[in-house]
Design a protein around this nucleic acid. Structure first.
Length: 924
RNA sequence: GCCGCGAUGGUGGAAUCGGUAGACACGAAGGACUUAAAAUCCUUUGGCCAGAAAUGGCUGUGUGGGUUCAAGUCCCACUCGCGGUACCA
């Protein structure tokens, strides 16, 4: 009987669905384990072979854990709000919901064909009202919370109000609007005028992680800086905890490092500088308190609130012109054109130590959002200050002995101080410490820790996102009552922003009345005599993805995001798989969101993802044909392009990889591919046209996209699963090359052939396996167990190939061996495993089998007789952890406890005989 | 610039704790079966050299040093590639 994968896979996928094999219960005596994939954004292009890589890896782990006896939660869902669906809607007028739902259906269809063990009953969609109700709910909670910096946690803002009512006499004198304004400065979700990344092409603001080098990550449109009134999340308050939490989770070092850099902790000092002729000083932040003696000027950020205070009448015009210029420069222009600019304010500061008068400048190299937006400039020891000083001809005072600052600054924190009063002679690090102590004692300043992490801008001027559950009264925002949630996304007449520049929801005036009145006013929870405007922005993409992992635990619950007892059972994601591109976006926001929910007591773990694996990218392998330059339609085979005849005379052109096999072009398919190639002529080598190749991103424009459906059709899901894992380590990026897939397919055929021969005879028998066969099996069990735990699936598959080869060779068909082998392979190739499990007469699904255990005693060599003959030339040296001098081998082995392993009553030590052999010696 | 990661045959990769480098697979070459093709099976396959052969020798993990009886693996310096970040004081 041949291996009919199409029939087998269809059969078992149907069986699993019918029997609810992958349904997971929230109540179980078994230990829990939660394996999660980063849920996909369902794009119109469907899945390509790169997408399932991580899903397959996590599926194998889930199935393995299940066989190990865990109750495994392994869900899938869709991140279905976002820009591409909306852009498509603007272009075509199709409702984003319609295209999104169609895309999701296609994704589910494609995913189901690969045989994942998802519990589809737990599917979530971020655009589903039953889901975004909880996104809105969390936002309302954030609105009504503040961050208590003493307790280092979020608390209800009502506590703050209570405090003020008791201790702050001015509080009661404030009007309601004034009180609201004051509270707004403390809320975790707050409305503020902030400098934002405005992308005119998208008509929308973007978060810092959505911008790269002055261009939007999606679409690559220019981004400019603008001050706008926006919703923000006080992520920065969590910076210390986001940093500290990294030490308690099992993520890759590189990812933790990326987050550490993004959070950007820096320890320094805040210091006050008096302004000549004014009473109030201003404050700067520095990490180099030791360099105060070398300060020769001060610099303010253009947006600094100090600017207006220090500008003198005669400098005003010049300053205004500069501020205007800075304002109109886009982020991209600033990055591209990094020449020194700035302007003198006319004022002078007083150096608190030398009492020298130093000029105050304004320049855009100082950022308003970091520190205090003002710096003391030490040109001798900071390269940016140095460039500025050279440009404006300001003095440069070296402070470190031996540092030559005639050509460039000396930025390193090392050397011996000079020109620095009481710091002279100290090492830089000592000087920093001493100066910190000095400024603290004298009250000039204080020690301060700064973070680079900014608050997240949370408004998007878009249609396809979660509406804010917010209405406005006298210009101040108020939340809708919780029982009005979800506030549904309305229908609109147009998905573009309104002409007045308002977000698309401005088109939904009618809805705002009908629905909101229905939901809010009718409940008489707010003044129904007045008509209140609703917030027209929607939430950003990361809103829906920030807590979705909690919703999977309890996705049908309409009373809570997740019931407390359910949350206490699953607790957190044990293993999370996804791309590292989310390092500074989703993976920060999720941690923040989770910590917030933890603070207010809704969930029991303060880190969402215990262990995280970043799967690598699957790159495309493009193929090329080489057109002879000057010819209309003649193509030269790859092997000839460097011959003298054609060298330098050909032009590579991408060709669809699906009409190329092992780099050999299917000439007829090529002619049929596009009309312009119908009359193509070829200069062949050995009668074949060979294509060149290159590794590039997998994309439509390179014609190198490979669709998993096609692979499943041709080779089966089990082959696809095996091959994706066989390509290399999960965490590594690697190119997809369909050529190699035959090897994995052949392996499954050979595996099948252990059970059935050509004459439909069932081969497994009841023979007792030999010691040799048991040893091979147990070696395999040990290896595969180890490999899965270390996500080293590719080497497991190699081990399977060897094992199956050995069995085929040895004619061993013992059911004892085969049964364990089927169980071992089942996480990798579940369909064929189910079929063979059934054929072996085993009860139930192989998904419920027990993971085979290995027995060390099968693995040990019984004993070795070691005979060493000395030929006078070779050098032998016995190396033991114990001192081996003047001992016989036996004595040395007995003495060696450091390298010893005990298996049963046998002692095994490692003996190294130089030069090359290693022998395990066993002594009873 | 700074931070992180990496570099092994024609290709993807293996070598898990410093111990026979190149497992496993693809591709290639040769052969068997076949009218033929597909499928399947067998042999060879890092490079160089010697040998009729069995086999033996040399060389070899980006470059240059070092530690060690022993280095792809550890240390130092460098080159190249990938990813992140960028006036963060």
């Amino acid at each position: 009987m041949d291996y009919n994968f199409q029939e087998i896979e269809k059969k078992w996928q149907k069986e699993w669905e019918k029997n609810g094999t992958y349904k997971v219960s929230n109540h179980s005596e078994k230990p829990h384990y939660y394996v999660l994939d980063m849920f996909p954004y369902p794009s119109g292009a469907g899945l390509h072979v790169g997408h399932p890589l991580g899903y397959i890896a996590s599926d194998i782990y889930s199935r393995y854990k299940r066989l190990q006896g865990f109750n495994v939660l392994h869900p899938m869902g869709f991140d279905s709000y976002g820009l591409p669906a909306e852009q498509y809607a603007i272009q075509t007028g199709q409702h984003p919901e319609k295209t999104t739902m169609a895309n999701i259906e296609r994704y589910i269809d494609q995913l189901k064909k690969i045989g994942f063990c998802y519990d589809w009953g737990r599917e979530v969609k971020t655009c589903d009202p039953s889901f975004y109700k909880w996104t809105q709910w969390a936002f309302v909670k954030m609105f009504h919370s503040y961050y208590d910096t003493v307790q280092q946690k979020a608390r209800p803002i009502s506590e703050l109000v209570a405090q003020w009512e008791q201790n702050d006499p001015t509080w009661k004198t404030l009007s309601e609007t004034e009180q609201q304004a004051r509270l707004m400065e403390h809320r975790i979700a707050y409305l503020a005028d902030t400098k934002v990344n405005w992308c005119p092409a998208l008509g929308c603001v973007l978060a810092n992680d959505e911008v790269s080098e002055g261009l939007s990550v999606r679409g690559g449109h220019p981004v400019e800086q603008r001050v706008m009134r926006q919703w923000c999340l006080r992520v920065s308050a969590y910076a210390p905890r986001l940093l500290e939490g990294l030490d308690r989770i099992e993520w890759s070092d590189s990812l933790k490092e990326t987050q550490r850099n993004w959070i950007g902790r820096s320890e320094g000092s805040e210091m006050q500088f008096a302004i000549k002729g004014q009473d109030a000083p201003f404050t700067i932040f520095t990490t180099r308190a030791d360099t105060v003696f070398g300060v020769t000027f001060m610099v303010l950020a253009p947006e600094s609130e100090y600017v207006q205070r220090v500008v003198t009448a005669e400098q005003r015009e010049e300053v205004e012109a500069y501020l205007d210029m800075v304002k109109h420069r886009t982020e991209r222009e600033r990055i591209a054109d990094r020449k020194v600019t700035g302007v003198f304010t006319g004022s002078y500061a007083i150096n608190p130590l030398t009492h020298a008068e130093i000029p105050i400048y304004i320049s855009d190299y100082v950022l308003s959002g970091y520190g205090t937006g003002a710096i003391m400039a030490v040109p001798a020891h900071d390269s940016r200050d140095y460039a500025f000083a050279k440009h404006f001809n300001l003095p440069i005072i070296p402070l470190i002995e031996g540092a030559d600052v005639s050509e460039q600054s000396f930025d390193a924190k090392e050397g011996v101080m000079m020109n620095s009063g009481f710091l002279n002679g100290l090492q830089v690090k000592e000087a920093i410490a001493k100066m910190k102590e000095y400024i603290t004692n004298t009250g000039i300043g204080r020690v301060k820790v700064n973070y680079r992490l900014r608050d997240a801008v949370f408004s998007r001027q878009r249609y396809w996102g979660e509406p804010f559950p917010i209405y406005y009264k006298q210009g101040m925002p108020y939340t809708l009552p919780e029982d009005c949630l979800p506030l549904l996304l309305p229908e609109v007449s147009d998905f573009k922003p309104t002409e007045s520049g308002e977000p698309p929801l401005g088109h939904a005036q009618q809805w705002a009345w009908d629905e909101a009145k229905q939901q809010v006013v009718d409940k008489a929870l707010i003044d129904n005599k007045t008509v209140f405007p609703l917030e027209l922005c929607t939430m950003p993409g990361f809103a829906g993805s920030s807590a979705y992992y909690l919703r999977y635990m309890d996705n049908h619950n309409d009373k809570a995001l997740v019931a407390p007892e359910v949350n206490q059972y699953w607790r957190q994601v044990d293993l999370y798989l996804g791309g590292s591109e989310h390092a500074t976006g989703h993976l920060i926001y999720s941690r923040f969101w989770n910590k917030f929910l933890y603070d207010i007591g809704y969930i029991c773990e303060d880190e969402p993802f215990k262990k995280l694996i970043n799967q690598g990218m699957i790159q495309g392998r493009s193929n090329f044909v080489y057109r002879l330059i000057g010819s209309a339609n003649t193509y030269v085979s790859y092997g000839l392009i460097d011959t003298p005849e054609y060298q330098g005379r050909v032009q590579p052109i991408h060709v669809n990889v699906n009409i190329v096999s092992n780099d050999q072009l299917d000439i007829e398919a090529f002619k049929a591919w596009r009309p312009e190639y119908a009359n193509a002529e070829f200069i062949l080598e050995d009668g074949k046209y060979i294509c060149g190749w290159a590794i590039e991103k997998m994309s439509k424009s390179m014609f190198n996209v490979v669709n998993p459906d096609m692979i499943v059709e041709k080779y089966g899901a089990d082959t696809l699963r095996l091959y994706e894992m066989f390509l290399g380590p999960v965490e590594q990026s690697k190119p997809w090359d369909t050529n190699g897939i035959d090897g994995c397919h052949r392996f499954l055929k050979k595996f099948w052939a252990l059970f059935w021969n050509r004459d439909d005879e069932f081969l497994p028998n009841d023979d007792e396996p030999t010691a040799e066969q048991l040893k091979s099996l147990h070696k395999l069990i040990k290896k595969v167990t180890f490999d899965i735990e270390h996500f080293s699936y590719n080497t497991s598959i190699s081990a399977f190939m060897i094992a199956v080869g050995e069995l085929a060779q040895s004619k061993c068909r013992s059911k004892v061996i085969l049964k364990d082998l089927v169980a071992l392979i089942s996480p990798f190739a579940p369909h064929i495993a189910e079929e063979l499990w059934e054929a072996l007469g085993e009860q139930g699904s192989v998904c419920d089998a027990a993971w085979p255990q290995y027995n060390e005693s099968y693995l040990v060599e019984s004993s070795i007789q070691l005979t060493i003959s000395f030929n006078g030339k070779a050098r032998f040296q016995m190396q033991f952890a114990a001192d081996a001098d003047n001992k016989t081998i036996e004595e040395a082995v007995l003495a060696d406890e450091k390298s010893a392993k005990y298996i049963g009553d046998k002692k095994v030590v490692k003996v190294i005989i130089v030069p090359k052999k290693i022998v395990n010696i066993v002594i009873k």
